[in-house]
């Protein structure tokens, strides 16, 4: 699945490794939370980047102690109407100061990209025919924002204050 990161299509440095499957050679692995919790040390010992995939019901609080060693947190949208990942992303950025990749996977819409970027997502697994121009357009539809989020953007109130 194509991956947009930092506003560009990039080669995915990770494989998602389903539970029970072997780790790939030479490439970082994204695993489920359950597998991560069971095989944490083995994973880190590989010396390759580690990613953890959270279901929308899984609060990233459980990763807190391990975050400095985690390269990517993948937040899953089971349905685009499930808005929990927005809060998880923001929590990762503002509460835990997570600097790694926050990736969106699953069912989300063009119309949600701007909010995702605002709350801290910086990587997006998109469908094959998705155009980068659309990604840029989605982020530019609304010039200004009323409320602070994880993106550190100046809000309308900041702009009013000059």
């Amino acid at each position: 699945m194509p991956l947009i990161r930092g506003g560009q299509f990039v080669d995915d440095p990770f494989f998602f490794v389903p539970d029970g499957k072997a780790y790939p050679d030479e490439k970082g692995a994204i695993v489920t939370l359950a597998r991560f919790q069971g095989e944490k040390e083995t994973l880190f010992a590989r010396g390759l980047p580690v990613g953890v995939r959270l279901a929308s019901s899984e609060n990233p609080q459980v990763l807190k102690a391990d975050l400095p060693r985690i390269a990517a947190v993948v937040l899953e949208f089971p349905r685009f109407r499930d808005g929990r990942p927005f809060s998880w992303a923001r929590m990762l950025r503002t509460r835990f100061a997570f600097k790694g990749e926050i990736r969106a996977t699953g069912d989300f819409l063009y119309d949600q990209l701007a909010s995702m970027a605002r709350t801290g997502f910086d990587a997006f697994e998109v469908r094959q025919d998705f155009a980068l121009d659309d990604f840029r357009r989605a982020l530019a539809e609304m010039t200004n924002v009323y409320q602070p989020s994880a993106d550190g953007r100046r809000t309308i109130r900041d702009l009013r204050a000059g």
């Binding site: 109407r81 808005g83 927005f86 809060s87 701007a114 995702m116 609304m142 924002v145 009323y146």
Partner: peptide, 11 residues
């Protein structure tokens, strides 16, 4: 204003 298109609380 705060709630308008709030990125965290629209879904």
């Amino acid at each position: 204003q705060w709630s308008s298109l709030h990125p965290e609380f629209s879904f």
